[in-house]
Computed example of a mutant assay.
Amino acid sequence: MKSNSKHVWVPGPIIVGAGPSGLATSACLKKQGVPSLILEKENCIASSWKLRTYERLKLHLPKQFCELPLMTFPPDFPTYPTKRQFISYLEAYAEHFSIKPLFGVRVQCAEYDPSIGLWRVQGNDLEFICRWLIVATGENAEAILPDIGGMSEFQGQVLHTSFYKNGDDFRGEKVLVVGCGNSGMEVCLDLCSSEVQVSMVVRDKLHILPREILGISTFGLSMWLLKWLPMKLVDAFLLLCSWLILGDTEKYGLARPKIGPLKLKNTTGKTPVLDVGTLSRIKSGQIKVVPGIKRFTNKGVEFADGRQEDYDTIILATGYRSNVPSWLKEEEFFDKKDGFPRNPFPNSWRGKNGLYATGFTRRGLLGSSMDAHRIAEDIACQWKSKTKHPPLEM
């Protein structure tokens, strides 16, 4: 910690991150009568949604599974709200609960000081002192850039999906999308709709599920069935429905893992793809499926099977990761390798010495809401039962 920093005492918890998870936790704390302070490195709430997402993005799940605590979506919102609608909801949420983050504060270091029994949080030229620290930077804090040989030799454009906005920017080009998760699939569909010649790298096996089964959300149906049936049977049902609705995806270079989609998500965190129309473009040949990349060339790539192909642009749909290990000085609660809590859901929200985590459940906004309620209730019990520290003399 910087010795010349100005010290600021915060009587309630500090929340790092003003995304949906941080906002939800702040609102739940406020309902319990506990004040909080959100520190946010960007100059706006929900910076990932506002600054790093493509224009055609919609919520992958129906809106009832994506609401934050204590406030529903407007009734006129569609089943799958758009990016702009979701951002407007988050802005209304922050205004409704009078949540006012401290923007432009990048947390460089946070460490528990056992000599005073409090957390020291270094942000810019300030050192915040607090009893409770809530990590809400989430699963997608920074882009993953793969290390592929020869990338510097490629003469075209290489960008991560966090910089991709819409397909019109690439009209008439030949584009390779590296990655076949939900983002990669949607970017391919968006490019295809803009008359771009697009190919998609599929290196691993993956599950593609219909977004809806007989007009019912596949996710919602899965959650309901899991209340009554073991996961193995629900997985078998989902795969049968997928085969009936989508057909045999392996014929198009999209082989399925042996483990069912729900079990795979539970054990590895790998989310199945919910098809929004990309598969039909793959079947028609408008989107070409290609194998993994061996190396870049000056005009394109060489694939794992030895074939070479030229491209104008390469878009990396290679996902995101947690950045917690870069700033949180803590050894037990968070895993230094992946930046996630060591304990799996539903026990991933509380650590020791007043440390909490929200938005690391691998269960999307629904998991964040569950975290927010638990954290607020736990801190409220301590807030009401213990004498609060007076401001420290620094």
Rank of each mutant, 00 (worst) to 15 (best):
R211A: 04
T297E: 01
T387S: 02
E302P: 09
Y80L: 12
I45G: 10
L23I: 05
Y89E: 10
D338P: 01
E173F: 02
T72R: 15
H389T: 11
T218N: 09
Y311T: 01
G179Y: 09
A24L: 10
P35W: 04
C44F: 04
N140T: 00
G156F: 01
L51H: 11
L39C: 14
V234G: 05
P20Y: 08
T278G: 04
L51R: 15
W224C: 04
G359L: 05
V178N: 07
P11M: 13
L392E: 13
F77W: 02
I259G: 03
G149R: 08
H389I: 09
Q122D: 12
I144D: 00
I148L: 14
Y54Q: 06
G19M: 08
I144F: 08
I293F: 06
C44H: 03
P210I: 06
P20G: 03
E111F: 02
A24C: 09
F333R: 10
T313I: 05
F237Q: 07
S162F: 01
P291F: 07
K100T: 10
M71R: 14
A24Q: 08
I375V: 08
E173A: 06
H60P: 02
T53R: 14
S222K: 12
T249S: 01
G351Y: 10
V289N: 05
G104E: 12
Q85D: 13
P257L: 00
W9G: 13
W243Y: 14
F334I: 08
W349V: 11
K50D: 06
A143Q: 14
V135I: 15
N182R: 09
I14L: 14
N182Q: 12
F340C: 01
K6F: 03
G123H: 00
P391S: 00
C130T: 15
H7L: 14
D125T: 06
I45V: 13
Q32A: 13
T72N: 15
V324M: 13
V276A: 13
I208G: 03
T267W: 06
I116V: 01
S115M: 06
D338E: 06
I208K: 02
N347S: 13
E212S: 15
F65P: 00
L51S: 13
L59G: 07
G220K: 07
R362D: 11
V10S: 14
W49F: 05
S152W: 06
K299G: 11
M370S: 05
D378V: 04
F345D: 05
Y112F: 15
T358K: 10
I148N: 11
C188I: 08
E331H: 11
K352E: 12
G285A: 09
P230L: 07
I14V: 15
E91T: 00
